[in-house]
Design a protein around this nucleic acid. Structure first.
Lengths: 209, 209
DNA sequence: CGCCTTGTGTATCTTTTGATACCATCGCGA
DNA sequence: TCGCGATGGTATCAAAAGATACACAAGGCG
């Protein structure tokens, strides 16, 4: 890989100089545009993507329904690829860039080696497994126990925190895709919230009260 | 720990003699009865249980509803404890023995050390993370996309395979708890299946056709 | 400007799921 | 033997969620 200005300024997790050398040697930088599909369900993966900048949306799909699993943000990687690195495995989800995204791509066969050699890499791997699991478990609990109305509210509140803004740019259809339901259901629920004065609806965005 | 006959005959994953010594030195054997609660939601865990014999049911609960996450069988361990070993963490689920169960209990602080020292231990850890994730993801997809009727069918078929028997000893209430719904719903669906001749209902068990 | 895509509002109808209630039966233990 | 809890059948009603269809508006683009 060509020397990249400030790569490890953005990837602070990897402190060992030796590890950094290896990453520079074997890694490739990739740029993805908004909407680019990086991983498809059923696909066999032999690389590990680490997001440098931007974001990847990982979701499951069934017929015309889809549901969000998690986002991969900077300094993070994806479970599907990680699973593939250790076992013969086909992706159980899709990955799509939600904005222009820069990705560091590493070949799978190095993952396990590095894990034994470099403590910071090991920590990264374990942390990924752990936090992805937690996320999924939280979403699972939500889907299993909370009616959609509550999940819409949850989603909007989390989004507000994350973006630090009460103006949430999302279409009803997109919201439905995040939550695993349909557009009509989302519109209906949002309208109810609007009547309850908890938000206002506009074309293309939602303004929380 | 007192020398235990054939412990490593049952735990074939741990091949290194050094690791076996460590396990014998720091581990304790524990016996649980059917119905014993081993882990509670919110509880802080400082041990890692590895099942030797029997089974632990790990599930989430909310008010009077509950839903199965997974079972921990022989040679397996639980995600909650594993997460606790690496990070400050409170269990997000409950664990209960479903039958008389023998458990090897190891202190949390050793998990990470051993992982760097013993490849077979590392493999065990990674495999646990990976397979627990896969299970949860499968269940998640099922809950998100499949109507309950289909999930009842899935459950019964899987149970048939696992037990290698078409006679499935389970009450409607228990089935409801596994699937995150209520008894009445399960009874209704099962009755429909009986009308369709795909199974017969008896007190305390279900006979698949 | 007209056209097309995307986004939104809403009505109607059906299906699924849940809540409640009541009753019958079984089997265990006092 | 009686009582009681666990199990299961079922009816009724309500709520949640989904399917379909249609209308309209906003905005980009040729």
């Amino acid at each position: 890989m060509e020397a990249t200005i400030d790569l490890f300024g953005k990837l602070k997790s990897f402190s060992e100089p030796e590890l950094q050398k290896e990453i520079l040697k074997h890694g490739k930088l990739l740029k993805a545009n908004k909407g680019d599909i990086l991983i498809k369900e059923g696909q066999h993966l032999n690389f590990l993507p680490i997001v440098i900048k931007g974001q990847i949306r990982v979701y499951q799909q069934k017929e015309d329904r889809e549901i969000l699993l998690y986002y991969v943000g900077p300094e993070q990687t994806c479970m599907m690829s990680l699973s593939s690195a250790y076992f013969d495995y086909n992706s159980a989800a899709n990955g799509m860039a939600t904005e222009p995204t820069e990705i560091l791509v590493l070949p799978s066969y190095l993952i396990a080696d590095w894990q034994l050699k470099y403590p910071s890499w090991n920590k990264f791997i374990i942390k990924t497994f752990k936090s992805r699991y937690d996320e999924l478990l939280a979403t699972f609990g939500s889907v299993a126990f909370t009616p959609i109305q509550g999940r819409v509210k949850q989603y909007l509140l989390e989004r507000m925190k994350k973006d630090n803004s009460k103006k949430i740019p999302v279409s009803h259809q997109t919201l439905a895709n995040e939550l695993g339901t349909t557009r009509v259901v989302v519109s209906r629920i949002l309208k109810q919230f609007e009547k309850d004065k908890t938000l206002k609806l506009y074309r293309g965005y939602i303004q929380l009260a």
